[in-house]
Design a protein around this nucleic acid. Structure first.
Lengths: 313, 313
DNA sequence: CTCCTTATGCTCAAAATAAGCATATGCTCG
DNA sequence: CGAGCATATGCTTATTTTGAGCATAAGGAG
């Protein structure tokens, strides 16, 4: 019964999946294909020099978008979720990519979709979204009541932590935990698949094929964690920008507002940016100084300990 | 020339590799096979229910050690490093496991090897190891001089950050960066393989087969990062312990000493532990109170934000 | 009984955070 | 053209978190 006894020929399909993010018009967006229903992805093949190279190939081929910074996210084996009786096993290696939207008139427009069309409960910039109180929590409450004893208490605990109830603060990093909860409670479309249940999912938010929405959640969570201790916003910003633009980008990613003055102080004391000497009038109001990232910082992205925290609102 | 044109049959071998860690006799150790030359590992097979399940199978089979807490580390494709002309591609999915050494007389003893026999430069508990100044830095300096211009400056920078020179503090988390530097500079045995070079590596530290030492470095780095923001030491501690024992475990992992009083304050204010009411005399000196982890904390390991920082010495 | 060892409580200064107040400088509209 | 509005930016204050050290307690060994 041991796995090593089953000396079958392994035929493992390995897929590469990309969560490519940019901030466009103040919204954090993911690069998608098929009108938002899937992330760029394709099999890892013998012709690929490396996992990263394979991923870049696929993304560029499917979306026309060249990748800059990428980092590995997570490797999933298709979960029990998916009906897979004699299906070949598939493994998905996912990556997080950060870019800007480089468009030109000669290229077809890319398919950038707002994160928050998939996860409407994640955007707290204009306060706590009403779906949380209106739809999510009531359904989750019912879900806790399906079981008894310690199991119920455990569900309650998980919900309280994930959604910040009972005095608990909202923790924007728990994107994946929240999605997994909704999945377990069968409140999202993906969880209803293959069960023969055709009812519309009780919680709003666009689904994706296979596990892609879960992978996107993983990417968002990673990015929200990472901006706090490593200067990765760079990759998302144009060469020059104002401090407010930088702040808006961080807020878009974190899904929450930050204290303006403290944000500025933080940026300055971290010595992440330097003034270009120019100012811009385009922002309306008093003209804003323009900044660029300091070259040293760009270099240190491999190692150093620069951080860019997201203070509370 | 595009990868998708090469419609070959993909035959990808997927291996599971485990970095299993315990703290034994005050030393952080990794579970190995073949007398320390390899980490437990084996192919992911159709019989395995999941990646994790497959990993557990292999580790248990090869070492007799049952796994508790595990988390995914990283997925590697065999790098260009390894000569692989028409070799089948292999992918290694690595995991980090945390346990205690559960031994019984009826079982053969496990092969636990100290981290620091592979990475002697990583243990700063008794001060900066002399190999850094005696062997590593001189060789690295020579390596910077192999190139000129900005490339040289870049190498210098990387070294300065990784090893904490020029006023920079030692950052214990940069385990992987340090190993990669030594690899690139061809100072470790693994880098000399397949080059026909038989000379002994200039820097001490035990090698492992294939990429295993790199995977171990990845695991150490992850654990050193993680103890700072999530209470994972638990998994490594016995059910009851004194605060000094807990501190020694953290120090073993971090490879550096911490301020005793501050460490205690931190533990207490985090409410990670509770007194058992007992004390032990076994420590010599004044008897120490015994503690256990609070059950709530054990539950929260999925989500919450408890941290256990490693203050400077 | 003294010294040595470990445990534990408490204080103090420095640094980092969170929140506000105040002022500067442009634009738009009546 | 002046009022009101919007954005930018400087500075202050209270609180919390860290880093470091002093002092005392409680056992054992000689």
């Amino acid at each position: 019964m041991n796995a090593s006894d089953t000396q079958q020929r392994h035929e493992l399909k390995v897929d590469l999946v990309a969560v490519v993010t940019a901030v466009i018009d103040g919204d954090p967006r993911a690069l998608t294909i098929r009108r938002g229903s899937a992330l760029p992805a394709g099999p890892f093949e013998l012709g690929h020099r490396s996992l990263q190279a394979g991923l870049r190939d696929w993304v560029e081929q499917q979306t026309g978008h060249p990748l800059g910074y990428i980092e590995q996210l997570y490797t999933f084996a298709d979960r029990d979720r998916i009906a897979e009786e004699h299906a070949r096993r598939a493994i998905s290696i996912s990556y997080l990519g950060l870019t800007r939207d480089e468009w030109s008139a000669s290229q077809p427009p890319r398919d950038w979709q707002s994160w928050y069309s998939y996860f409407p409960w994640e955007d707290h910039r204009a306060g706590v979204p009403s779906i949380i109180g209106d739809a999510i929590l009531p359904h989750l409450k019912r879900w806790t009541e399906e079981v008894g004893g310690t199991a119920r208490e455990e569900r309650r605990q998980r919900i309280a932590i994930a959604f910040g109830i009972d005095e608990r603060p909202w923790n924007e990093e728990l994107v994946l935990q929240r999605y997994e909860l909704l999945y377990e409670a069968a409140l999202v479309e993906e969880a209803l698949r293959g069960r023969g249940e055709e009812r519309t999912p009780p919680v709003p938010g666009r689904p994706m094929i296979a596990d892609h929405r879960r992978i996107l959640a993983t990417g968002i969570a990673r990015l929200r964690t990472k901006i706090k201790y490593r200067p990765v916003v760079f990759e998302l910003m144009p060469p020059v920008f104002t401090l407010l633009q930088l702040q808006r980008a961080v807020e878009a990613l974190a899904g929450r507002l930050v204290h303006k003055q403290n944000f500025r102080r933080l940026i300055e004391q971290q010595e992440l940016v330097e003034e270009t000497g120019e100012t811009t009038f385009e922002t309306g109001g008093r003209p804003a100084k323009l900044f660029r990232f300091r070259p040293a910082v760009l270099m240190e992205r491999t190692a150093a300990g620069t951080k860019l925290s997201v203070p509370r609102a």
